[in-house]
Design a protein around this nucleic acid. Sequence first.
DNA 1: CTGAAAGCGCTTACAG
DNA 2: CTGAAAGCGCTTACAG
Lengths: 354, 354
Amino acid sequence: MPPSRNKDAPAAVKVGAGKGGKAATINDIARLAGVSKKTVSRIINRSPLVREDTREKVEALMREVGYTPDPMARGLAFRKSFLIGMVYDNPTAQFIVNMQYGALDTLRDSGFELVVHPCDSRSPNYIDGVRRFVQQQKLHGVMLVPRVSEDQALADMLDEIGCRYVRIAAVAMDKPERMVVTHDHDGAAEVADYLQTLGHRDIALITGPADYRSAIERTQGFLGALERRGIVLPESRVVEAGYTFESGVAAAEKLLAAKKRPTAIFCGNDEMAAGVYRAALRSGIQIPQQLSVVGYDDSPLASRLWPPLTSVRRDTRDTGRMAAAMLLQSQDGPRPMASVRPHLVIRDSCQPPE
Amino acid sequence: MPPSRNKDAPAAVKVGAGKGGKAATINDIARLAGVSKKTVSRIINRSPLVREDTREKVEALMREVGYTPDPMARGLAFRKSFLIGMVYDNPTAQFIVNMQYGALDTLRDSGFELVVHPCDSRSPNYIDGVRRFVQQQKLHGVMLVPRVSEDQALADMLDEIGCRYVRIAAVAMDKPERMVVTHDHDGAAEVADYLQTLGHRDIALITGPADYRSAIERTQGFLGALERRGIVLPESRVVEAGYTFESGVAAAEKLLAAKKRPTAIFCGNDEMAAGVYRAALRSGIQIPQQLSVVGYDDSPLASRLWPPLTSVRRDTRDTGRMAAAMLLQSQDGPRPMASVRPHLVIRDSCQPPE
DNA sequence: CTGAAAGCGCTTACAG
DNA sequence: CTGAAAGCGCTTACAG
């Protein structure tokens, strides 16, 4: 046949992803590769039912043309978007940002994107808000960040509407394939061991709110480890506060007003530890000479304080990475839960008691 | 006709958004309302070409059924998603989180969602990364946060591919309908006036990196206002640093080592001001008695420091709100730029010189 | 291993 | 002011 038959062949106009021209579609690829769109679809979706040389030819073409399947078209057909939601009710900016970084680390080049949904878990209809968010966008899955991750009603709702989720929490509270556990219990226990080893016996604890699982775990981990080492704190040495700077100041003032002061204070987070610094400064108490202080989070604040604060680091970015990875896993069956281990970062806020 | 004719009528199965049943579609609404899907579409898109009573009837039905149009189907037909992108290269967590909160304030109940895209503007191909992000998701628009907002090459690329964007920056650097201006010049000028009014004459400045527009504006605003009040800083009183804590420490050490120390230091951000605190502590210099310090950002750190740091507040959340609102505006024509004004928050880190 | 048909839930022309 | 047809770019059955 003469070359004129080319009229029947694909127009072969190369359509790059950039500039003025429209982006290539699955039809363009199919036409240019001389296969059906279904075959291209199989390749996009990594189906094994494609001959190896066909796959290679088409993949080369897709690269050359710069083709990426349209997530909205795929989403419409799949009845499911290529979006991962991150739901949180957490005022700690660094924590949230790190979690986002981590999630995006694993989402990069996966075709998925991260859509954020901060909310107010004290608001009566926040669960409805999350439901609308999930259903309207047909989210592929959601990451539940503390403290909303602890809300069983939220998890139940997601389960009911068939939305995949992963909970990030201090301790396992769901099926393992839905959990990233941060083991706050162990982080706090490490603090207890450290203070005991330094020689502290009269130790105080400022806890977070008792309805936060992280606060409970840190408290139990700390007290439990102390007990194992023969130290039992009297009730007067344990003060509940609100995870905030101001509540930390108030709790510290109470503790430091006692006739006999503790020689060390462990705080449920760094913000409250900063509050202890403030109260100590007001009372003319030297840290660490007269008072050792330990925080939790290893926030940027920890190294800005003077003396630099010893604190428990949690690798939040890694946590985010893991949570997103679990959401992308294709199989739905039971898998082991993910774990991220906290560890103590020793700075200059502790020394042996005088 | 007997009731049996109902077989021809809509099945009238009420399909709520929740539970097991599938969500209602435009076809369900059209059928139940007895109009064409095109009419429903017109109502969704707020077309005026619908009779008022038709509109009301259909809207009531949509509410009753809990119908929301599928963003992926709409997006596919529109060739444009209902997603707003936020692109940033900024290490300040609180700033980013506040910007996200602000954007979400205006996106709430708009049918749009926020998808985040942190990036590394020093990486050679980050612009390509943003392009893929925008094109692949067919984003409706993007918010450009400092410092990527200052990159003309990024803006040019977005313009070229026809992507709507808004730049948030210290000063106007694009068409007004694409700008949210934070007037860092004025914020810094207010600091100059404040210090001069307190009686300071020997003042120092620690600037951010000279290739950050915010640093340039704050520097010029500060120096300009001082000059207007008859104070000209010698070169030795102006030190460039990197917007980081450590660089602030180093810059302050240089300034405080001088035979004659300045009586006040203005820092381009709070992190560097925290560095000045650290350096002053090391040298046994009392703040504010022997040295007044002012920061910029009014970050959480400002009130955690001792003494609490006087700083320039920028309403970042409001900035985010405005930027998102500009992206949602339907008309594309020229509009006035948006402005958000900084203002000084006076705490305890300044007093008249001794 | 491959393909033609129908459909996901919307919208854009085009008629009336 | 309203509607029937075709199409957005993919996928799911269903055949071969």
